[in-house]
């Protein structure tokens, strides 16, 4: 590397410091809200795939295959440029003119629905990993299918999939960077913008990198504790990755 002019102090100057803070805030906000959509929806879709009802399983499978086989960026463009055009007239008007922060909410919705397909796969595999005998035993004891899920399958299933669910949460956190393609000023796009204004590329990208790594490390540490607390006696704990 030749003569690179290091300029770390510039990151502490306004407006650049403010950009990083607001970008980091947006990244976290997008990830958390998208996860709030993805977790319940993904759980529902995953459960649908484990029921005995063929049509419900089909809907679940179709959902997962649809969202998993289209690049996230293409989905982002479809939600942002195509869906508003296909809505009924007055909805379309509202989305285009009156919806607050359209880019932000479009990105959140897109990430939430996409991540739900990944959560669904984890929930399904968590439940399918439980020996079938447990479900049958529950039914034989007179529990309704709903009760079998509530008292037998879900408590065991969720606890075994904490590590992959952690990865999926970190996935949505990292994928929130795709929001920059439709103009949301999150962490990566703010770093990029600082680079364009100040040429302090290394400083800007390194800061963003450190922030991403810190959150990842923190989430992994917390989830390891959660995993330890909720471990099912007699099973081997797998570390979150």
């Amino acid at each position: 590397m030749g003569a690179y002019n290091w300029n770390w102090p510039i990151l502490l100057k306004e407006p650049y410091f403010g950009w990083i803070v607001s970008g980091f805030g947006n990244t976290c906000l997008i990830a958390v809200i998208a996860w709030a959509i993805a977790f319940p929806l993904g759980s529902a879709v995953g459960l649908a795939r484990t029921t005995e009802l063929p049509w419900l399983r089909l809907i679940g499978t179709a959902y997962v295959e649809l969202f998993r086989n289209i690049p996230l960026l293409a989905q982002m463009f479809v939600w942002y440029y195509v869906v508003p055009e296909l809505l009924p007239n007055d909805w379309s008007q509202w989305v285009k003119r009156d919806m607050p922060y359209p880019q932000f909410y479009t990105a959140v919705l897109c990430l939430g629905l996409y991540t739900a397909s990944r959560v669904a796969e984890q929930v399904r595999s968590g439940i399918e990993a439980i020996p079938r005998g447990q479900r049958h035993a529950g039914l034989a004891m007179g529990l309704t299918p709903g009760q079998v899920y509530r008292y037998i399958l879900l408590p065991v299933g969720y606890r075994t999939i904490i590590p992959p669910l952690t990865s999926d949460f970190l996935g949505v956190f990292k994928n929130s960077s795709l929001a920059l393609t439709i103009g949301v000023l999150e962490l990566t796009s703010q770093a990029r913008q600082i680079e364009e204004y100040t040429f302090a590329a290394f400083e800007a990208f390194a800061t963003a990198t450190v922030l991403y790594c810190m959150v990842t490390g923190l989430v992994i540490l917390i989830m390891r504790q959660v995993e330890r607390r909720t471990r099912i006696a007699g099973t081997i704990a797998l570390g979150a990755s």
Partner: peptide
């Protein structure tokens, strides 16, 4: 694995010419 791919792309896009 804790970095978004977009950020990795930006890193190399600006890093390689400088290096």
């Amino acid at each position: 694995r804790s970095m978004p791919l977009i950020l990795v792309i930006f890193w190399f896009y600006t890093l390689i010419p400088r290096v």
